[in-house]
């Protein structure tokens, strides 16, 4: 059974491999649904980040990626990009993430909404169905708020099937 997105995201972020292998200071992406490995999964990437108070966030090219099973959160794959890339071509960083000028509470609310929408939407995606077009539209809008536009090419390169489905 597919678990709620928030729970999957927590398992993704706190997986033992992430804690042991991925540098604390890295930017960790939101895990996105995918069927790339022929089973429901959530995949995300890590990239170097520069966070200096008073300056914009800067992200380097992703250096590692991993995926967990969407049903039970077990690790499916972990790899360093230089050993096993998640795409034949990944846009090179660094990128500077423009400030959205939003408050922390507004960003928290966007993430909460993203969790709800993904929980509602992913059963259709994992089931190979189109799903409710209104939910897909809402999801696309919230993803536009939560994912930094500058990092979107990396998200798309890692889980192209999900973004194709979203924009169907």
């Amino acid at each position: 059974m597919i678990q709620p997105y928030d729970r999957a995201a927590k398992e993704f972020a706190e997986h033992a491999v992430r804690v042991a292998e991925v540098q604390v200071e890295h930017f960790i992406s939101q895990p996105m649904p995918t069927l790339r490995w022929s089973r429901p999964a959530y995949a995300g990437f890590a990239c170097p980040a520069v966070r200096i108070p008073g300056q914009a966030l800067e992200l380097g090219t992703p250096v590692s990626w991993w995926a967990i099973d969407a049903d039970h959160g077990r690790l499916l794959v972990y790899a360093l990009v230089r050993i096993l890339s998640f795409a034949s071509s990944i846009p090179e960083g660094p990128v500077t993430v423009r400030s959205a000028g939003r408050s922390l509470s507004a960003v928290r609310e966007d993430r909460r909404l993203l969790g709800e929408l993904l929980t509602d939407a992913v059963p259709a995606f994992f089931g190979g169905e189109s799903g409710d077009s209104a939910i897909r539209a809402d999801l696309a809008e919230v993803l536009g708020q939560v994912l930094p536009p500058e990092a979107k090419p990396w998200y798309r390169a890692l889980t192209p099937d999900f973004f194709d489905w979203l924009e169907r």
């Binding site: 972020a13 200071e25 930017f27 939101q30 966070r51 959205a100 993430r111």
Partner: peptide, 11 residues
Amino acid sequence: NADFYNGQANH
């Protein structure tokens, strides 16, 4: 600082 909020440990 919302620009540095990651929803995960990063510092």
